[in-house]
Simulated scan of single mutants.
Amino acid sequence: MRSLLNMFARPKAEYHSLYEGVVAAAREADWYRGGKVPDTLDGRFAVLSTLLALTILRMEQGEEETVRASVHLTEAFIADMDAQMREEGFGDPSLGKQVRSLVGALAARVDRWRPLAESDRLEPGEALTDAVRFSLYRYDPPEEAAETLVTEKLRRFHEGLGGASDRKIMAGQLA
């Protein structure tokens, strides 16, 4: 039975580059310096989960293999959050609840960005501003210049995903 399941499952190592590519994009200092996203665990999570949401939405538009890989990307996120929470000292009784909360936050971002991401370009307007504020600032935006910088970074990230082949995305070549 185990060998039968292995025929359908890809080794998780194949998705390491993809997840690491999103993490690398989330670590760019501009989010926190120029964009004024708080450089805290919550702020870093906000950037990571927003970029993951945009990546997942792009992958859902790809070939069947890419759509399946979006599930593995989410699994890599869950495994990383579990490991991070353990490092922060969360114990088993509360760990599941905390990780579920983080997964819920990712799902909320996917839902918030879905209507915007369906176009080739994130169009300026109230919906985009609302999504940026919800995802990164929790409706407490910084000055206009910082919010504009973050919005443009998100637009470029989204456009880069839209212009990349499925193969490049799955290899973690997101820039």
Rank of each mutant, 00 (worst) to 15 (best):
E147K: 04
E118I: 00
A105W: 07
V99T: 07
P141L: 01
L122H: 05
R114W: 02
R121T: 14
A26I: 03
L154H: 03
R27Q: 13
D92N: 11
T50E: 06
A79K: 11
K168S: 14
R44I: 03
T40C: 02
L48E: 05
R44N: 08
R27D: 15
D140Q: 15
M1G: 15
F8H: 09
D120W: 06
Y139F: 10
V23T: 04
L136M: 05
A171W: 05
R155V: 12
A9T: 15
V67E: 00
D166F: 06
A79H: 04
G89C: 00
R44S: 02
E75T: 13
D166A: 00
V67W: 05
L106G: 09
D111V: 14
G172K: 07
A83H: 14
L116D: 00
S17Q: 10
Q98S: 13
G96N: 01
L128K: 04
L5V: 12
Y32W: 02
Q84H: 09
F77M: 02
E63H: 08
G43P: 06
F8D: 04
L116E: 06
R156S: 11
G163D: 12
E118H: 11
A9P: 08
K168A: 14
A76Y: 06
V110M: 06
G91K: 13
V99A: 11
L51R: 00
G21F: 02
M85V: 11
D111A: 15
E65N: 07
L128P: 04
E143R: 09
P38G: 10
N6P: 06
S70M: 05
P93D: 03
E87F: 09
A145N: 06
L51D: 07
E126P: 10
H72P: 01
T55Y: 10
S49E: 10
F90T: 10
Q84A: 14
D42A: 11
Q61L: 12
R112Q: 15
F45E: 06
M81A: 12
E147C: 10
R121E: 14
L57G: 00
A175N: 09
G43M: 02
L57V: 07
G62V: 03
G89N: 10
Q98R: 13
M170C: 10
Y19I: 05
R100N: 15
E75D: 13
P38C: 01
E20A: 14
R58T: 09
D82F: 07
S94G: 14
Q61I: 03
A164C: 08
G21D: 06
F157P: 05
V37C: 05
Q173R: 13
S101D: 12
V67D: 03
I78D: 08
M85T: 03
P141M: 04
W113P: 01
L52M: 11
